[in-house]
Design a binder for these strands. Structure first.
Lengths: 142, 142
DNA sequence: ATCAAACCTGTAGTCACTACAGGTTCAAGC
DNA sequence: GCTTGAACCTGTAGTGACTACAGGTTTGAT
């Protein structure tokens, strides 16, 4: 159990929090503005004072974002966690929907890549003022 | 060779162009504003009058966008085409750089999917107030 | 006290659109 | 010709997720 003095030594400025979490200062303020992060206490001079719990929350947010969850999805997950009595099923539902989105996006990109690779392969990159890529994409005169 | 009267019958309003190309009216105006599309002639009442050549250009733009080229990449390609004496190599360079971006993006998404699938698989979606997903993503108390 | 770095709030910009608001034009129907 | 609704116009602002200032204040070292 930390003593009050020891707890006070764990206080972080926004710059320190930024460094510890790899999250941009301005992004941290953005997250506060949109409600993902609670407004922290301030110094007498108006500077934000973050506790360890703030840091842990921000790490969670960043991990979710890195995994591609949208801000809204992160918000839903945080609401579940904040409520303190979420079910594992609710979390899994959000996660699996996101997984589905990822799969669809990958399939989409693969199709694009395949199409583009086919078009590009028809071009040997010469100096001729014609190009199969342009010829494919630019409609002919009717 | 179309007669002047026949050429005049090929004139499209912006709504007609939107329908023929599947490109939103407001997006067409946006493309004009950012210079991808040239400003077309106007009717006496100020309405835009698009020729067939405008339509072909817009189809090209839409195809490139659908393939994931950024607006700037489309702009580069259009500059090449507009110059009229581009080399196939220049076009291929833009295209292959885009292909590389696509490949990187796919690899990135696959990694995310794999990570997330692993995390999600640890969750059987029950009613317990604990969740391996949250446990993985939310830092523990130090 | 001085000074540079860190911080603050507010505003605006990025990218590629998308959605109005308020007004004008067009064309069909009477 | 008049009416009316649809289509069009310009200008502005919003979307999502940041990111970058400007101009001012606070902090901490010297």
């Amino acid at each position: 159990m930390m003593s009050p003095a020891a707890a006070r030594s764990a206080v972080l400025s926004i710059g320190a929090l930024s460094q510890r979490t790899g999250c941009n200062i301005e992004t941290i303020r953005y997250y506060e503005r949109i409600g993902l992060m609670p407004p922290p206490p301030r110094t007498a001079g108006g500077h934000r004072s973050y506790a360890k719990s703030h840091e842990r929350r921000l790490v969670f947010i960043r991990r979710c974002r890195e995994l591609g969850f949208s801000i809204e999805e992160v918000r839903v997950l945080l609401d579940l966690v904040d409520g303190g009595h979420y079910s594992c099923g609710e979390v899994k539902a959000v996660t699996d929907r996101h997984l589905e989105d990822l799969r669809a996006k990958i399939a989409d990109l693969k199709k694009l890549q395949s199409t583009l690779a086919t078009i590009s392969a028809a071009c040997n990159g010469g100096q001729v003022p014609e190009c199969p890529i342009i010829d494919t994409l630019y409609p002919n005169t009717d």
